[in-house]
Simulated scan of single mutants.
Amino acid sequence: MTDTRTAPWGLLTLRVTLGVFFLLHAYLKFFVFTPAGTVGFFQSLGLPGLLAWAVMLGELAGGLALIAGLWTRPVALLLLIPVVGSIWTPHFAAGFWFSNEGGGWEFPLFWALALVVQALLGDGPYAWRASPSLRALRA
């Protein structure tokens, strides 16, 4: 049975944490690796450089949307695309454990599952636009 007193706060925590993590990854790509470095890395994997820009902007916009609680379900599902993509390229070859050299796919898989959970459960409190599932919990 779901505890309706605390479940919304779990949703809020998950949503904001996911959003912050995406903002941190966008920051890393823009200010540490730099856009040119990120594009070069994508190209070294055989991916188009334009995809690097889509990922960087998607992480930035998606992170902000999750923190705000704006279109939480579709944003969580859209953010699955780069996360699942990172499992196959480049993390899959490094094995399961993320502590392996090159970072395995353990952490991206966990992140993908957290996004699926967020999409299934909805916004949580303090969302810009609360989903119908949240309104049902409040009733």
Rank of each mutant, 00 (worst) to 15 (best):
T2I: 15
T4S: 11
P8M: 06
P8D: 07
W9N: 07
G10W: 05
G10P: 05
L12H: 06
T13E: 02
R15E: 02
T17L: 15
L18T: 02
G19H: 08
G19I: 06
G19C: 07
F22M: 13
H25P: 07
H25M: 11
H25K: 09
L28K: 14
L28M: 14
F30K: 05
F31P: 03
F31V: 12
T34F: 08
T38E: 01
V39T: 13
G40W: 03
F41P: 01
S44P: 03
S44Q: 14
G46A: 09
P48L: 10
P48A: 12
G49S: 08
G49Y: 06
L50E: 14
L50M: 13
L50T: 15
A52F: 04
W53H: 14
A54E: 09
A54F: 13
V55Y: 04
V55E: 04
E59W: 11
L64S: 10
A65V: 00
A65D: 03
A68I: 03
A68Y: 06
G69C: 08
L70N: 05
L70K: 08
W71I: 00
T72S: 11
V75Q: 01
A76K: 01
L78C: 12
L78N: 01
L79E: 07
I81G: 01
V83H: 03
I87L: 10
W88F: 15
P90I: 04
P90M: 03
P90A: 10
H91G: 04
A93D: 12
A94W: 12
N100D: 10
W105R: 02
E106C: 02
P108N: 09
F110P: 00
F110N: 12
A112K: 02
L113E: 02
L115I: 11
L115P: 07
L115D: 06
L115H: 11
L120T: 11
L121T: 15
D123Y: 07
P125S: 13
A130M: 12
S133T: 05
L134C: 00
L134H: 10
L137E: 08
R138W: 13
